[in-house]
Simulated assay, not measured.
Amino acid sequence: MEDHTKIEPTAALVMIWAREMYGTGSPGRFYSILDLSAGEKMKAECDVACPWYNQVTLNRKWMIHRLAGEFIRGADGPCQVILPAAGKSPLALELLDDHNDRIRSVIEIDISGMEEKKRLYEKASPEFAGKISCVTADLFDLPGVIEAVRETGMYDPALPTVIIPEGISYYIPPSLLSGVIGLFSSPDHRNTVIFDFMLPCRLVNEDRRKFPKGIWRVINHDCNPDGTVTYTPEEIEETLKDAGCTRIDLHSMHFIEKDRTGGNAFFLCVEDGWTVIVEGRLPLSNYHRECEI
C-alpha cells in the first residue's frame, strides 16, 4: 500500500479484529494509514480456531477505554496517561478525542517503532501530536525506562495518572509486570492501572478452552515461542499488590459483553470467558520511592 505504514503481524492482527472501533475521528485517520496486510495470514489461521475472536478484542478495548475515561473524568484536575508497550495502538488518540481538555500529556513506551509512531501521529492528528511523547525503552530495563520517561520533560509525578499496559501481561513475567506498574505510583494521588490478562484454561468451561488454545497456538508459533503467561485472579491480585495496588477490581468478558452490546451472545456465563480486565488503584509504592522519578 503506497504511503501506508506496514506493521508487524501480531499488531496487525489485533488492529484487524478491532477495525469497527476506528471508523471516525483521530483514531480513524490513524487506522487508515496503516498497512495491516502482515496480519492477514494469522487472521485466516485464527478464524479456523475461533471465527468470532474479534469480539474478545472489541470487549477488551471497549472496557479499557471506558475505565480510563471514568478515571480521567473523575480526577481532580488534569491527568496524564502512560502506555507501556504501546505498539501501534491508537488508544492515545481515542482518549484525546474524548477528553482532550482533561489530559495534560500521554507518554508511550516501547522497545522500537516509536519515532515512526510519532510521525504517524503528526500525519493523522497534528492537533494532538504535541501532547504525545513516544519513548524508546526496554521494559526489561526498568532504570532505563525511568530515565527515558524523565528525559521527555512531560512526566509530572504530581498529576493523577492512568497507566495502561494493554496486551503485555501475556508476554512478560509477573515480577516485571509489577515492576513496570510500580514505576508510576504517586505519593499524592490515587493513580490507576488498567490492563488485560488471561486465565489458565482450568478456570474456563471445558467446552470453551479450545478457543483460546487455538488462537494462542497461532500467535505463539509466529511471535511468542516462550508461551503465554496466565494468571488466576489470586495471582493477578498478588502481582498488583506487589506493585503497591489497592482496591483491585476484575471485569469478566460476560459482564463486559453485556455492557457493550446489551446482551450475551458469546459469553453466556462468567466461566465462558478467558480474558479479564483488571483495574487497580496505585498509591505510593516502595519501588517508586526508591527510584525517585
Rank of each mutant, 00 (worst) to 15 (best):
M1N: 01
E2V: 04
D3T: 04
A12D: 02
V14H: 08
M15K: 14
A18N: 09
G25F: 06
G28H: 13
F30V: 12
I33H: 05
L34T: 07
L36I: 06
G39V: 10
K43E: 06
C46M: 15
Q55G: 11
Q55N: 14
L58E: 12
W62T: 14
A75P: 01
Q80C: 07
G87A: 09
K88L: 14
S89Q: 07
S89H: 00
P90R: 09
L91A: 13
A92D: 09
L93D: 02
H99S: 06
I103V: 14
S105Y: 04
I107P: 05
D110T: 03
I111F: 03
S112I: 13
G113A: 11
E116V: 09
K118S: 03
G130E: 07
K131V: 04
I132S: 01
V135Q: 01
L142C: 15
G144Q: 15
G144M: 15
V145C: 11
E151N: 13
T152G: 09
D156H: 06
P157L: 01
V162F: 01
I163H: 01
I164H: 00
I164R: 10
E166R: 03
S169W: 04
Y171G: 12
I172T: 04
P173S: 04
P173M: 12
L183F: 10
F184G: 07
S185D: 06
N191V: 08
T192R: 00
I194R: 11
D196E: 08
F197I: 14
L203K: 05
V204F: 10
R208C: 04
G214K: 11
I215V: 02
D222I: 11
D222M: 13
C223I: 15
T230G: 04
I236G: 01
G244D: 10
G244M: 02
C245H: 06
T246M: 03
R247E: 07
D249C: 14
S252N: 01
M253G: 15
H254G: 06
E257M: 09
G262P: 08
A265M: 13
A265S: 07
F266V: 05
L268Q: 04
D272W: 10
D272T: 03
G273M: 00
G273E: 02
W274H: 10
T275L: 13
I277L: 06
G280Q: 10
G280I: 01
L282A: 05
P283L: 04
L284Q: 15
R289V: 10
C291F: 05
